[in-house]
């Protein structure tokens, strides 16, 4: 281990520890804020884990998030908490496999379309089930989980997700993703199962997102399909990951933190015009920073030093 990487690891651990001790010296409001922020950090990082290297834009974030939350609400009284989380992850995995197997062999746009309507489909199915089979819409969650507990779980999940994302970058899977990004024909002729790699990554990403929903569920005590399948969640995740930059480990995190604070402030001050402002910000981001702030910062930085960075999508020499 070089001195520099040792330093980064140490820094990561110190920051993590400082964040973990936060509930002991900060008030209830800060913890609530941090739950939301950490949740979005995980969502954006998990989203970028799949969508960054494959360029498949997933609009299904809230479908998995909602599946997680709803599974917890259904099972919270029948199973121990750990098993409830496990069950939620499993349901998310199964849905991800079905969606992935159906669409990931095809061109990316089919996946986008499928994921676009997935949240609405799951919401309507859950609503139909609750109204027709159980006869109630909406459920109470009584779990002995404090908001500090939720925060710690999310923090652990965030650390695990970042670690996982980092590990992929140095694994064979990471190499496979780079090769697929460069040239799918070469990839398959080298023995890479392209659809398999995409499916694996999509499933991991979906399971993490499902867990975020599951862990956050006890916060609400009462949930309804329209609450947990709110498309704004998918939208925010997407903006945050794109603003930070999906090609870099820290990109989604750096996008999530400022945007989360901005959106909190906006929704508190402009509750009615919130979606409009959100949409306009997003359009602006796509126009101004197509590769995210980190890439833009690197470009400006290298320009200042007179170094040219080759564009990522330049292709081969011929």
């Amino acid at each position: 281990m070089t001195l520099k990487s040792f330093g980064s690891v140490l820094f990561f651990l110190v920051v993590l520890a400082a964040l973990a001790f936060l509930p002991f010296y900060a008030g209830e409001y800060v913890v609530t804020l941090m739950i939301g922020m950490t949740g979005y950090v995980v969502l954006a990082t998990a989203w970028a884990l799949f969508s960054g290297p494959t360029r498949y834009i997933s609009l299904a974030t809230v479908a998995f998030f909602g599946i997680g939350a709803y599974t917890v609400s259904v099972l919270s009284e029948t199973l121990p908490y750990v098993l409830v989380l496990l069950a939620a992850a499993l349901v998310g995995l199964v849905v991800a496999l079905v969606v992935g197997l159906a669409t990931l062999r095809l061109a990316g746009v089919y996946f986008v379309i499928f994921s676009f309507g997935l949240a609405e489909l799951v919401r309507q199915l859950v609503t139909w089930y609750e109204v027709n089979i159980t006869g109630t819409l909406g459920r109470y969650i009584f779990l002995p989980v404090t908001s500090d507990g939720i925060y710690w779980q999310l923090l652990a999940l965030a650390a695990a997700t970042l670690l996982f994302s980092w590990a992929i970058g140095r694994s064979r899977l990471g190499l496979a993703l780079k090769v697929i990004g460069d040239d799918e024909v070469v990839a398959s002729h080298c023995g890479i199962n392209i659809a398999g790699v995409k499916l694996a990554l999509f499933s991991v990403s979906a399971v993490i997102i499902t867990l975020v929903g599951a862990i956050q569920a006890p916060r609400w005590t009462y949930i309804e399909p329209s609450m947990v399948f709110n498309p704004t969640t998918s939208f925010l995740t997407l903006i945050m990951a794109l603003l930070g930059g999906v090609d870099r480990l820290w990109g989604p995190l750096l996008g999530a933190i400022p945007l989360f604070l901005l959106f909190e402030w906006l929704s508190a001050n402009f509750p009615n015009h919130y979606p409009i402002i959100l949409g306009l910000i997003f359009i602006a981001i796509v126009f101004v920073l197509p590769n995210g702030v980190l890439a833009a910062a690197e470009r400006i930085f290298s320009k200042r030093r007179g170094v040219t960075v080759p564009a990522a999508n330049q292709g081969g020499a011929l």
Binding site: V112, L238, F287
Partner: peptide
């Protein structure tokens, strides 16, 4: 896809 997704929220 991204830009029209933003437009969706505006409208």
């Amino acid at each position: 896809i991204l830009v029209t997704f933003g437009l969706l929220f505006v409208i």
